[in-house]
Simulated scan of single mutants.
Amino acid sequence: MTEKEYLEFKNLISMGDELNFYYKNDEYWISHIQDKSFLSRTKDSYTQEFCGHKELFEHATIESKKISEVYPELRQLK
C-alpha cells in the first residue's frame, strides 16, 4: 500500500467504512459498532478493541507493530 493509498484507507475508516486488508498471508478486518472500532485477524478471530478509529490507528498492532509502521506491506483487495 502506498502512502497515498494508506491516507485514503484511513479516511474511509474515519467515515465509518469497514474494510479488510492483508498483511503477509493473514486477512484483517476493521469494523465499528457504535463508538467502538475493532481490528480483527480473520483466521483466529483475534480482536483488538478501541474507543474509535483514531485510537485504533494510534494503538492497534499487527505482529507487535503499529499499522503506521507496516502499511507499506498491507494489501487491499479492490
Results as ranks from 00 to 15, higher is better:
M1N: 10
M1R: 10
T2I: 11
T2N: 14
T2E: 08
E3L: 15
E3W: 14
E3T: 12
K4A: 12
K4D: 07
K4T: 13
E5A: 14
E5V: 07
E5S: 14
Y6A: 07
E8G: 03
K10T: 00
K10D: 00
N11D: 01
I13C: 02
I13V: 04
S14D: 06
S14K: 10
M15F: 07
M15Y: 08
M15W: 06
M15T: 10
G16S: 07
D17T: 01
E18N: 02
E18G: 00
N20S: 06
N20W: 04
F21I: 00
F21L: 01
F21S: 00
Y22G: 05
Y22S: 12
Y22H: 11
Y22K: 15
Y23M: 12
Y23V: 12
K24L: 09
K24F: 06
N25Q: 14
D26P: 11
D26N: 15
D26C: 13
D26K: 15
E27H: 11
E27P: 05
Y28F: 14
W29I: 15
I30V: 13
S31A: 09
S31V: 13
S31I: 12
H32W: 09
I33L: 03
I33F: 00
Q34V: 02
Q34W: 03
Q34K: 11
D35L: 11
S37E: 04
S37P: 07
S37D: 04
F38Y: 10
L39K: 10
L39W: 09
L39T: 10
S40P: 05
R41A: 04
R41P: 08
K43R: 09
K43V: 13
D44A: 13
D44C: 12
D44G: 11
S45G: 04
T47N: 05
T47V: 13
E49A: 06
E49H: 02
E49N: 01
E49P: 00
F50C: 08
F50T: 09
F50Q: 06
F50P: 01
C51K: 15
G52L: 02
G52E: 00
G52P: 06
G52M: 03
H53W: 03
H53Q: 02
K54W: 02
L56H: 02
L56F: 03
L56E: 02
L56C: 02
L56Q: 05
L56R: 03
F57C: 05
F57L: 07
E58F: 08
E58S: 13
E58R: 11
H59W: 07
H59P: 04
H59I: 05
T61P: 02
T61N: 05
T61L: 08
T61H: 06
T61Q: 08
I62V: 08
I62S: 04
I62Q: 04
I62N: 01
E63R: 14
E63H: 12
E63G: 04
E63I: 05
S64D: 08
K65Y: 06
K66F: 03
I67Y: 00
S68D: 07
S68N: 08
S68I: 08
S68G: 11
E69W: 03
E69K: 12
E69S: 12
V70M: 09
V70D: 01
V70A: 05
Y71T: 05
P72D: 09
E73I: 10
E73S: 15
L74S: 07
L74D: 05
R75Y: 10
R75D: 07
Q76I: 09
Q76D: 03
Q76H: 06
K78S: 13
K78E: 10
